[in-house]
Write a protein that binds this DNA or RNA. Structure first.
Lengths: 329, 329
DNA sequence: ATATTTTTCGGAACCGGTTCCAATTATATT
DNA sequence: AATATAATTGGAACCGGTTCCGAAAAATAT
């Protein structure tokens, strides 16, 4: 590997001169030409480790994502990236592939790389996480989950679930199924379920049943088919759009029609929700905007400006046909 | 920031001893305890720049992706990550957000970070790219695009398009539209179109019309509505599943049914293709498997083992209902 | 022509680790 | 007890850059 010393030797100057040349300091025109030539010939590329060692680099923000193939994650990442670029920051992405151990490892790895801050798109927060939060001397921002003492940017899971469920109730439904996920996921698993239950409990004659499945479409579909066979809710509130898709597929497989036979609603407003037919009524979370918020909040943290402990992203209920037809029950 | 020298000073030993402790060298049990205590108290975290400066780190592979919110990209990344982990390599993701300039910058940035190799999920290869390829003294693997002199792992765009189009022709269609993308995209834009045209040209009575749109669903939908109004192909071959979704949406909007009124086929086998109704006939590209291939190929390059210049990933045509009903034309 | 200012450049120290080597200490062997 | 061997430790050099400082050279002023 060719180093700055090689360049210096080959062009007959001191390496401090080469460094100055590279960083736009004052260099005589003939030495400039000599150095230029050598650099071109050797296709020298500076070693950023060596650079960062002396000059630090407070312009990199690390992000840790639980998975790469998720609409929410990737949109949020885009938002973060977009916002960081406007401030001349760079984004470093580390994937933990749904593995909590890897997630924690990634936090430490970013700390070793001396990033200016860490944005964690979190799922479950375990004891190792909190230990890391305590130990790491880096600003950390949690997105999508809340944890006491840590800056958090959360989706309004409970309130949006409440609103969505109210909408379903207003359509006349009284036998409603909630198809959620593991309660280890505080936001999606717990928050959305609580909002749902709260809304249902305000209606004396309403009946709620809660089920649990995973995040995959197929898993949800199988679960839904099972549920339909033993129980016949008139409406489904699903913890994610993917789960809603599974329910709709199950309905179709068993010869039922949406929304004629039952209504379905989800969370996320994935791109497909507006394209499919019937369109899926869902809670839109503006992930990209959330990413931008996360990034600018992190900028503030890095610069020592005051930031609220808990922030909320916006949401909006998008009504589409999957909830359209208020039928007689 | 607390450094190894601080730890050494505080525990009354030389920093070489601390270093040895950290790396599992021989350290006496009492010094071990002293150092341990200090490290815990100061929550010391080593600086990985300093570490990498001396010990290099040939165990990081950089990847550059054109966008984060793409099914193909994210699945491929997952495959790369999965495979690299089995070999104790790490993956560094840089996003270029569809910006060729950023893409090239990212290549140089990875080179400065002295990664062991670079996997580039490419779209368009311009002159700056080729300059970078020449200059960078790092193994580079192109995925999804081919460029002479560069190791490439490509999807069999042309052949799969030919096969898919043959299938459409076999169903009896003779007036077929191809809805593709910009020809600056060598693989998706050119390869798939050529395969399509080749298949059509083998049928004397077949009629092909090629159109162009972008990668977005909505853009494709608008384009398709426009086309339907002036022309009425009986089948559509779309360069991506997203484009196919746009066409199906357009058909629906204008009161046509798929596959009754026209057949539609795509490329990619996005998750939704099997969930929606009618299911979308498409070319499955096994992106995750491609990612794994890319990673193990990169391992070989890094280790100086021989690798073929051009490799092909697998593909398979998945027949679903969108092409199901051979109707009388 | 000399004095002064400005520009250009080399030397050395430093960033925070790792590693080699020699010195010291502890343990085993005879 | 003396010696051989092994384990532990500190010092110094090094990785590849940046930066500070002072000397030399060049440009400008007097």
């Amino acid at each position: 590997m060719v180093t700055i010393s090689d360049i210096a030797r080959l062009s007959g100057v001191a390496k401090s001169t080469v460094s100055r040349y590279l960083n736009g300091g004052s260099v005589g025109s003939d030495t400039r030409i000599k150095i230029e030539k050598i650099i071109r010939e050797t296709s020298y590329i500076p070693n950023s480790f060596a650079q960062s060692l002396k000059t630090k680099r407070p312009n990199i923000i690390g992000t840790v994502v639980p998975r790469l193939d998720s609409y929410a994650s990737s949109r949020t990442l885009m938002g973060i990236d977009e916002q960081l670029r406007t401030q001349d920051y760079e984004m470093l992405i580390l994937n933990s592939n749904r593995d909590p151990r890897r997630e924690v490892e990634n936090l430490y790895s970013l700390a070793r790389q001396k990033v200016a801050g860490i944005i964690l798109l979190a799922t479950e927060i375990g004891p190792e996480h909190t230990a890391a939060f305590r130990e790491l001397q880096v600003p950390i921002l949690l997105v999508g989950q809340q944890y006491s003492g840590i800056y958090s940017l959360i989706h309004d899971d409970e309130r949006s679930a409440y609103d969505l469920c109210r909408l379903v109730l207003n359509k006349g439904h009284r036998r409603i199924a909630f198809l959620g996920v593991s309660e280890r996921d505080q936001a999606v698993g717990v928050g959305r379920k609580i909002g749902f239950i709260k809304a249902v409990s305000e209606y004396k004659d309403a009946n709620a049943i809660c089920y649990e499945t995973g995040f995959g479409i197929e898993e949800a579909q199988i679960k839904a088919e099972e549920i339909i066979r033993q129980n016949r809710p008139t409406a489904w509130v699903c913890a994610t759009d993917n789960i809603a898709l599974g329910v709709m597929k199950a309905a179709h497989n068993l010869g039922f029609r949406v929304p004629d036979d039952f209504s379905v609603a989800g969370f996320g407003d994935y791109e497909i929700a507006g394209i499919m037919h019937p369109g899926l009524t869902t809670v839109k979370f503006f992930y990209q905007e959330t990413g931008r918020m996360a990034a600018s909040c992190m900028m503030k943290l890095v610069n020592g400006q005051p930031v609220e402990r808990v922030m909320h992203s916006q949401y909006k209920i998008i009504e589409r046909e999957s909830l359209d037809i208020p039928f007689v029950l």
